[in-house]
Design a protein around this nucleic acid. Sequence first.
DNA 1: ACCTGAACACCGTTCAAGT
DNA 2: ACCTGAACACCGTTCAAGT
Lengths: 206, 206
Amino acid sequence: MARPSTPLLSREQILRAALDLLDRTGELGLPRLARQLDVGTSSLYHHFKGGREELVEGLRGLLTEGSMPTGPGQGEGWQDFTRRWARGYRAAFVAHPAAVPLMTAQTVTHPSTLASYETLAQVLHDAGFDDEELLHAVTVLDNFVLGSALDACAPVEVWADSGRPGSPLSRAIRATKAQPGDRSERAFHLGLESLLTGLERLRDDR
Amino acid sequence: MARPSTPLLSREQILRAALDLLDRTGELGLPRLARQLDVGTSSLYHHFKGGREELVEGLRGLLTEGSMPTGPGQGEGWQDFTRRWARGYRAAFVAHPAAVPLMTAQTVTHPSTLASYETLAQVLHDAGFDDEELLHAVTVLDNFVLGSALDACAPVEVWADSGRPGSPLSRAIRATKAQPGDRSERAFHLGLESLLTGLERLRDDR
DNA sequence: ACCTGAACACCGTTCAAGT
DNA sequence: ACCTGAACACCGTTCAAGT
């Protein structure tokens, strides 16, 4: 076939197919992805010269662009914005569990994801956080969101059968499983609020 | 050679070689590991019938057993124990950065790691946390530690060149890089203390 | 620029054969 | 039980050849 007059592929198209493959099978193999697109494996390298790593980074962009706030709303306080930032970030990952290990295994280089870190930093700066506080704040929030995403994508049963059936942990899991409301989601809320008040105190105690 | 009169390998030995290989090269390939041990790849499967996954789980055990507290000390409060638990957990990972993505990509099933979750739950239970609070506490701490481990193992430069050089985030990074004290470590401390007071409030506000 | 097919150096896993 | 070597079905990446 050689070069077609009109391109068979585009980054967009490949990324969508990759996300679809990942959601359906939990894996992302380049040969498999290419087969899905009715194309040779090597064709993918024309659109992602960085190979698999660049493709995964593209996925990060696809996920975060749709889900993270671009800037603070009218008169929105730093706490409210930070809440939206963290929730949006986590939501982006939780919607595609199989993508999470890929994201966490690889350094963030996607511009729009990095831009959202910048935005958060800007908001905190404007709220009176100094350099060091700001950096710690961003780090802490990033840490917590990523960890929470990992947790949300793991089965609850993980800890269930860990010890004696009467142990506090397994009892707690059974007790909590009954009630509605996602365990991971509720824990995320609790942790996020704790971090927000912790950060506020950090700023004010100076 | 067939079966040797005295075994050439042991789980211990394989795990140590695996950790060594991981620390040195950042990767953990079974063929490469076998070559390192002067053994055929398939020999590994006699000691880890679950294959690579079981091997990685064994690594988790190796890391956590040496680093996590087995129980509360004499008259140690829940906050102090929880601090030790979280710090030990994180330290186990941070000492072997290349192992972190492997750990986070895979469900925890190693008994001794699970036991340490049980211990934490027990301590919180004895401190008056009810089932739901306890589960949230463990989840939140777990999330934060894993996220922090991921962060600690990533290069600081990640965010450095993200936006305009004068952006708050890159300024903050430059300002903080100069001073001693590990950024990730300090952020971890801040977040952990925030979570601890958040958890205390959760328990007391009931 | 964009696709192909072949080639390369790897993977993880299984299994019959040997003691 | 424990090691071997061969075999299988995969990987990710590169590259000359074609338009």
